[in-house]
């Protein structure tokens, strides 16, 4: 059950509205692959030079002030931030970049809707807590960044082995992370149901199926 407990190092981003353009800039959306985006995560903040898709972190001029360039945060796997994380564009590349860097969970007081959905398709757990709870975790993370434990089955967060908060997330969404499920396979089990609906729709709303051009 390796997918049901997340432990590791917490990186904190004390900022609201971190949008998907910050998480991964447009330049890297030119890739046609689904992996290999870790080096471009938070590119604009992480490096001092301008990057290109075929470059790696080693080719770049690092911004030493940026948290993910500092020990031990260069190996973070939990991200803690404030409001509206992942707002903006629908690019799933943002989640791929977080995942490829090694992030397994993001804790925030709110998320962009599309980003939130995309997370579950890529084994990154978005955890929504209240602003006060997030502030409290900020304090805990500043003093002991390596002592967080997230239990996906119990839906709770512990710090230094003390229970801190439980969080809410839909079981069906969580299941996809815990059991590595694929949505297409799940939906195709309802193939007949979809076909039935479609046939009926074709009768009722014929214009949707009439393309004369």
């Amino acid at each position: 059950m390796s997918n049901s407990i997340i432990t590791g190092i917490v990186a904190i981003f004390d900022r609201d509205n971190i949008d998907t353009d910050q998480i991964i800039p447009t330049e890297y959306l030119k890739s046609i692959k689904k992996y290999g985006f870790g080096d471009f995560l938070f590119d604009g903040w992480r490096y001092l030079d301008e990057g290109k898709l075929n470059m790696t972190a080693d080719d770049r001029l690092k911004n030493d002030d940026f948290i993910l360039n500092q020990e031990p945060f260069n190996k973070s796997n939990i991200l803690l931030t404030r409001d509206n994380f992942g707002c903006g564009s629908s690019r799933e590349h943002a989640v791929w970049a977080l995942r490829d860097f090694g992030f397994k969970a993001v804790i925030a007081s709110s998320f962009g809707d599309i980003f939130y959905n995309n997370c579950f398709k890529n084994s990154v757990l978005p955890i929504k807590l209240s602003k006060e709870e997030v502030s409290h975790l900020f304090e805990r993370a500043s003093s002991s960044p390596d002592s967080f434990e997230i239990d996906l089955l119990k839906k709770e967060i512990k710090v230094d082995n003390d229970f801190c908060y439980s969080f809410e997330v839909k079981d069906s969404l969580l299941d996809r992370i815990v059991h590595n499920l694929d949505d297409v396979d799940i939906t195709l089990k309802d193939k007949l149901l979809i076909q039935e609906y479609e046939n009926e729709r074709q009768k009722q709303r014929a214009w949707l199926f009439d393309y004369s051009n």
């Binding site: 995309n118 799940i186 939906t187």
Partner: peptide, 19 residues
């Protein structure tokens, strides 16, 4: 509405969206 790439694949394959 906008969707992510996994959902693009899902819509192509099933003509449905899970939301």
């Amino acid at each position: 509405m906008g969707i992510g790439t996994s959902e693009v694949e899902h819509v192509l394959a099933t003509q449905c969206l899970k939301i």
